[in-house]
Computed example of a mutant assay.
Amino acid sequence: MMPGKLLQEIAQAKPWTCREEEAFLNIARTYEYLAQTLSEFFREYHLSMTQYNMLRILRGAGPEGLNCTEAARRMITHDPDVTRLFDRLEVRRLILRKRSSVDRRVVLASITEHGLELLSQMDEPLCDLHVRQMAGLTPEKLETLIEACEALRP
C-alpha cells in the first residue's frame, strides 16, 4: 500500500497505527480546509458558520419559528450557548424572538425579512463555492463520499 497524501502534507515519517486512523485524520484535515474557505466566505457577510447555520434552520422553520431547544437540535455543529447566538443575530435584526402564545415559558425565534434577504444574497454564491470545493470529485465519487459520511453517523 502506498503512503497517502496526508503523510506528506503533515511531514510524518511514521506510518499510521491503522487505516481507520488515516481515514479519520484525512476527514479532519479536509474539514479544516473546507471550513477555512467557508469562514472566509461568511466573513464577507459578517457571519460565522454557526450563525449562518441557525439562519438556515430558521428559514426552513417558516414564519412560526422554533424554540431554542429544537433549533439547537437541528444544528450541523453543536453550539452550547444558543441563547448568545440568538442574541447576536437579534442585535443585527436577522431574527426575532417572542414568547409562545401556547406556553409563555417558551421563547420562539424566527427569521426576519432582513435575515431572509441576507440568505437570499448568499444562496447562489455559496452554492458556487461548494461546487468549486467539490470540483475534484466526479459525480460518482461525490455520491460515494456522501454515502460514506452518512454511514459513519448513527
Rank of each mutant, 00 (worst) to 15 (best):
L116C: 09
L137A: 01
E22Y: 08
L89H: 04
P125G: 10
S39G: 07
A151Y: 09
L145N: 10
N67T: 07
S120I: 01
R93I: 08
A61T: 05
V102K: 15
Q133K: 07
L38Q: 12
E124V: 13
T37K: 08
I10R: 13
P139E: 12
E9H: 02
E44K: 04
D87P: 02
A61Q: 07
C18Y: 01
A109Q: 03
D87V: 09
M122E: 14
L94A: 02
M54R: 06
D123M: 14
A11K: 13
W16G: 03
M75Q: 11
L6K: 03
F41T: 01
E64R: 10
P3L: 14
P63K: 15
V102S: 11
V102W: 10
V131W: 10
L66S: 04
E117C: 09
I76W: 13
D79P: 02
T50E: 14
L85S: 07
D128A: 11
L7I: 11
E90G: 05
L118H: 04
M134D: 07
W16F: 11
G4L: 04
L85Y: 04
E143Y: 06
L129C: 13
A13K: 13
M75T: 08
L96V: 06
M122I: 15
S100N: 11
Y52N: 09
D87F: 14
C149W: 09
D103E: 15
I76R: 14
E20D: 11
H78E: 13
G65M: 06
P63I: 13
C149Y: 10
K98H: 15
T17L: 13
R105T: 13
L119N: 15
R105I: 03
A71Q: 10
R93F: 12
D123C: 10
L108V: 13
H78S: 08
E21L: 02
R56H: 06
